[in-house]
Design a binder for these strands. Structure first.
Lengths: 139, 139
DNA sequence: TTAATATTCTACTAATTCTATGGATTAAAT
DNA sequence: ATTTAATCCATAGAATTAGTAGAATATTAA
């Protein structure tokens, strides 16, 4: 399951997209609109900024805004940033790979691994093709 | 990611399958063979038993054994039992559904939900078609 | 009927991760 | 200067995960 933090992140991004034309948006505006604890949201937005998805401006008239086109922000990217690996086993993760102590035999022949690779690939097909833009399609 | 407990569960089931012909298998034998903490494994096997996957016998000559054919034990079933929902959001889970506080609008139109339904369906295609029998295919 | 064997049950503890908050600091605008 | 708003730092509480200890119960076999 996605963490609460990750769900907040998606909602915050959705909010920024909805109000894109209005210029920088305040943390507190997003928090109110999407019912996210203000301070928690602060940390989330900062993380999204450091990863290059958002820009921000301090002081009066400041706030957060999207740096990329909605089509360029994939679900997979956000999930990897906030929650980490999408794969079900570390030894099968593309972005967070770790040699798997669980593979008692070698990884090449580990059968659990083989199935998990398939799961990963099918999940990625969806998560890497869907972007923020899909959040606005109300159909 | 799967919990350690869940990985242990798969390895334990694999072990039971490999030694099926030898009659009931001791917890401690499985623990040693698969490098699982004995006491932790105990709890896992009991859970698998209560869910109907395993049988057991106490006393001398006792131990655990599979109750079902390998083809009848799906990955999805084990994951749901040990780790819970496979879906990424509660409001999208088939077996652990909860009304989603995150859907600020109604569920029918929540766009985050729509994407997550697709992810769930693709994952399930794999996890419900793969069974313990696939763990023995060393190809 | 007793001793040995092995699962089952109850009740913890430790460690880690997740969720959330408080307050001081820095940057920008007027 | 004053106000506004993001940034940084530190921490605290709750929940979940991982693992352990020991007593109770069931079975076998002598």
């Amino acid at each position: 399951m996605l963490s609460k933090k990750n769900r907040y992140a998606f909602h915050a991004l959705e909010d920024l997209l909805e109000h894109r034309s209005e210029g920088p948006r305040l943390i507190s505006e997003i928090a109110t609109a999407k019912k996210i604890p203000r301070k928690f949201l602060e940390a989330i937005l900062l993380e999204l900024k450091k990863a290059g998805f958002l820009g921000s401006k301090m002081g009066k008239g400041g706030g957060y805004y999207l740096l990329k086109q909605a089509e360029q922000i994939r679900f997979a990217d956000i999930i990897r940033l906030i929650d980490g690996p999408i794969a079900l086993l570390p030894c099968v993760s593309l972005n967070y790979y770790e040699t798997c102590e669980d593979c008692l035999e070698d990884e090449a022949t580990c059968s659990l691994r083989k199935v998990m690779i398939q799961v990963r690939d099918e999940s990625l097909k969806v998560l890497e093709s869907k972007t923020l833009a899909d959040l606005l399609k109300k159909t």
